[in-house]
Design a protein around this nucleic acid. Structure first.
Length: 569
RNA sequence: GCCGUUGUAGCUCAGUGGUAGAGCACGCCCUUGGUAAGGGCGAGGCCACGGGUUCAAUCCCCGUCAACGGCUCCA
């Protein structure tokens, strides 16, 4: 059977064929297979309309039904350039194919494309496909180059697979944190305040508080010290740190106050460094571990903002470690360990890491030592990782932790980075046991990444149905009629007294309506109080995801909820 | 920022060159109920904003802003 990438690549050719037929003015450029589908970029003066897409899809169906054979032949560079002389993109590609590599043309029916190959044998092998969207895309991803029109599609062996994929897309839509955020009243982004700035509503803020408490608890156990640093500081600080030089395009512009320029901080590290520098440090002080839920502001171009996952103001669960070089491995291990504890608690059990090392030009002996320490830490944590040699890490080697969520999407969360640069820039020292000054190493680490993004991912991961320990409302007491209202309040008071987040639903509605309401609000426990329950001092427990209803005394429900919360379920 | 799409009630969306509608949500009333929607009434709109065309613009044209889907980048 044809592999999916080959089938999708073929589908891209079919699309280009259809475009050639229906819109001969469009110049095909490149059209690869991608995850779940394919795209093809065209240069065309007039944009494709939704109606164009329908026509293209219909024409593609004919091409697939015609079951053309995919035939390839090798040509010389000159022949390739000649046959695409009206298409500068193809000519550019033909020119750039390295010497010695075969140049091939592939044809289906009346359509021939410059292509390295990897196709289905016949167009009929494309079992099911669908065009999805049109979008602008720069030629070769370079915004200085012409904007092309990219048509996205998806293709599968069978209709059933296509349907399953489309259903998965719907599921993702259903879980979209922007949608659930509004429905569950968790957060909003307000036009009146500006894009990319998050307003946490009470229910969202409650969840965030629980997450923060959880993280703080772990940090306390691991010897982190809390610090709190200003949001706006003199620009000079970022000159020293190098942010103005390297990160300025991501920073908000300067604020002028009494002829001094100030900046919103884009990172917390310079502030933490100032605390380190505020007095002399001894080797005995190290490792020194500072942590802060530090709110930072970064300028992002308006087009990239997205819900909670891409914002302009966010709070990192930041931490900076100041270390002797010999402490690097142990501390790195600890940071990893803490990251895994966090991820497991939030029911992520599929994660993997990318280790990016410093660009070769910047590498020194310290890098090798740090890299060895990180690798050793990774081995001992039994974490699988992919190495990204020279992967752009500027300060030192860096480890990114990615998770796969409940519907298979991958997110980057935490990061642990070794930094040799800032200690130099700020001339950080500690007094060694030899009486001399030494240079500490820094680790930057954020485990959840940012509270905003982490929350957004959690919403989607749980589809808004937070486990009881996280749920902003853990239980609702629902009196069947107003005769049970007093009892409902009494029960709720007991539950609150036991430390739980509980509401009472006194609305003038029938039971079925209230049940439906709280089910859609994804509250873990709905506690029904009718005549019978009042008489017996019990509650009828309707637990989320559990068909069977049980009648429990208030005390035994408290026990049950308590153990659910303690086990983080 | 760039390309495309969209902007009508709190939300989801109809609609028309002659100043606007539904469902849900909201308020009041009736109802006092047994596990996913009981009934009635009511309130709610600078039809995103600014220009233009027209006797007349929510509708047509231009611009701006915002959201959404991408490109690029990242927590």
């Amino acid at each position: 059977m044809t592999e999916l990438p080959e089938l999708r690549h073929t589908a891209a050719h079919v699309l280009a064929y259809a475009v050639q037929d229906l819109f001969p003015d469009a110049k095909p450029t490149i059209g690869p297979a991608i995850e779940n589908g394919f795209y093809y970029d065209f240069d065309r003066a007039v944009p494709f309309t939704p109606e164009d897409m329908e026509k293209l899809e219909a024409r593609m169906r004919e091409i697939v039904a015609a079951d053309y054979e995919m035939t390839g032949r090798e040509v010389t560079r000159a022949e390739a350039i000649e046959s695409f002389r009206d298409n500068p993109y193809k000519v550019e590609m033909a020119r750039e194919i390295p010497q010695g590599q075969p140049i091939t043309l592939y044809s289906i029916g009346e359509f021939t494309d410059l292509c390295r190959g990897g196709h289905a044998h016949r167009t009929g092998e494309i079992g099911a496909f669908k065009l999805q969207s049109v979008a602008g895309a720069y030629w070769r991803g370079d915004e200085k180059k012409p904007m092309l029109q990219r048509i996205y599609g998806t293709a599968w062996h069978t209709q059933a697979e296509l349907d399953a994929y489309l259903q998965q897309l719907e599921e993702a839509l259903r879980r979209d944190h922007r949608k659930l955020g509004a429905e569950l009243d968790l957060f909003s982004i307000e036009e009146a305040a500006g894009g990319g700035l998050v307003f946490w509503h009470p229910k969202g803020a409650i969840v965030r508080g629980i997450i923060e408490d959880f993280i703080r608890e772990g940090l306390r156990e691991r010897g982190y010290l809390p610090v709190i640093t200003p949001h706006v500081v003199s620009e000079r600080l970022f000159e020293t740190s190098g942010h103005l030089e390297n990160f300025a395009q991501n920073m908000f512009g300067p604020l002028e106050v009494e002829e001094q320029r100030y900046r919103l901080k884009p990172m917390n590290c310079p502030g933490h460094i100032l605390i380190y520098k505020s007095r002399l440090r001894s080797y005995r002080d190290l490792p020194l571990r500072y942590s802060e839920f530090g709110t930072v502001y970064r300028f992002e171009r308006s087009g990239v903002l997205h819900g909670l996952t891409r914002v302009r103001g966010f709070t990192t669960d930041d931490g900076h470690l100041f270390l002797r070089p010999d402490q690097l491995q142990r501390e790195f291990e600890q940071a990893l360990d803490e990251a895994l504890r966090l991820l497991r608690a939030f029911k992520f059990d599929d994660f993997f890491c990318y280790l990016s090392t410093r660009e070769p030009l910047l590498r020194g002996a310290t890098d090798d030592a740090a890299e060895a320490a990180i690798r050793a830490a990774l081995e001992s944590s039994k974490l699988s990782y992919t190495l990204d040699e020279g992967g752009g890490a500027f300060y030192g080697p860096k480890l990114d932790i990615n998770v796969r969520d409940a519907i298979g999407r991958v997110w980057q969360l935490g990061t642990v980075q070794v930094d040799f640069t800032l200690p130099e820039r700020f001339d950080l020292t500690y007094r060694g046991n030899d009486g001399h000054e030494h240079r500490p190493v820094m680790i930057h680490r954020a485990l959840a990444g940012s509270m905003e993004r982490f929350f957004g991912i959690l919403i989607e991961h749980f589809a808004g149905a937070f486990p009881a320990w996280l749920a902003p409302v853990q239980a609702v007491v629902v009196p069947i009629s107003e005769h049970q209202a007093a009892y409902a309040h009494e029960a709720a008071a007991q539950l609150r007294g036991a430390g739980f987040r509980v509401e009472v639903d006194e609305s003038n509605e029938k039971l079925g309506y209230k049940i439906r309401h709280w089910k859609t609000q994804k509250v873990p426990y709905i506690l029904v109080a009718g005549k019978q329950e009042v008489a017996d001092s019990t509650l009828n427990v309707n637990a989320r995801g559990v068909e069977e209803k049980r009648t429990l005394t208030v005390a035994s429900f408290i026990e049950e909820l308590r153990s659910a919360v303690l086990s983080l379920s």
